[in-house]
């Protein structure tokens, strides 16, 4: 049919390595999301409640993360910091880059969540004698998490897809590993086709897991 012979055998042989790399992809994406959620919450709260230098710092973070390419951010943590003599390992470049990006996007989601929650919830909590910290951790934030649950799921999918940029900074997660094998065997199409399938499966698993988790978490 085509003037091309597909060779799937070498791809199948390196499948175990690709699966291992897929777990590395998942690991870095999950870590970036955890860091991103914590920092994103702080950025959102700072932007909602503070003024002055901290507000500007948080706003700059959020706007830069959202208005420049993720690859630019990765390059910045890669060789941009090199200008200051700071050389991160490929793993750390991807982790810091993704965390920076996720924190910026999640901050906006959280901000929307906080604004959507009636402030009477906070008042009611305080009227019961809760401290501000107790009111936030027990009443406000759990409800905000439900509001932003869907965006967080999407961001998790984005984090997985974005981690493929690791390929361009020498990190051997799923894409980097694929490129490594592809360039050694010249079966570029076959390798990347399998990798595309693996990403697709990962994304579907994340979405399914998120749906199951939602049923367990949100019974109200």
């Amino acid at each position: 049919m085509f003037d091309y012979n597909f060779h799937w055998r070498p791809v199948m042989k390196s499948l175990p390595d690709l699966i291992d790399a897929a777990f590395l992809t998942l690991q870095v994406a999950v870590l970036a999301m955890i860091i991103g959620i914590v920092i994103g919450l702080c950025l959102a709260l700072i932007r909602l409640h503070l003024k002055g230098p901290l507000y500007w710092l948080a706003s700059t973070w959020v706007e830069v993360a959202r208005n420049t390419p993720a690859l630019f951010q990765l390059f910045f943590f890669g060789f941009g910091l090199g200008a200051f003599g700071l050389h991160l390992s490929p793993y750390l470049i991807v982790l810091t880059g993704l965390s920076f990006n996720c924190a910026g996007y999640l901050a906006e989601n959280f901000r929307g969540g906080f604004q959507a929650l009636p402030d009477t919830q906070l008042r009611a909590s305080r009227s019961l004698g809760m401290t501000a910290w107790q009111a936030y951790t027990r009443v406000v934030i759990p409800q905000v998490f439900r509001i932003v649950y869907h965006p967080i799921t999407n961001q998790m999918v984005w984090a997985v897809l974005m981690s493929s940029l690791g390929m361009l900074v020498g990190f051997r997660e799923l894409s980097g590993e694929t490129q490594f094998f592809a360039s050694r065997t010249f079966r570029i199409f076959e390798y990347f086709a399998i990798t595309a399938v693996i990403y697709y499966v990962i994304v579907k698993i994340i979405l399914a897991a998120s749906r199951l988790l939602a049923i367990r978490l949100f019974r109200y």
Binding site: P118, R123, A124, S125, Y220
Partner: peptide
């Protein structure tokens, strides 16, 4: 000082 509000403000979660 217990307080009851106009919008009842039960915690939905």
């Amino acid at each position: 000082l217990g307080m009851v509000f106009q919008q009842w403000n039960s915690f939905p979660h």
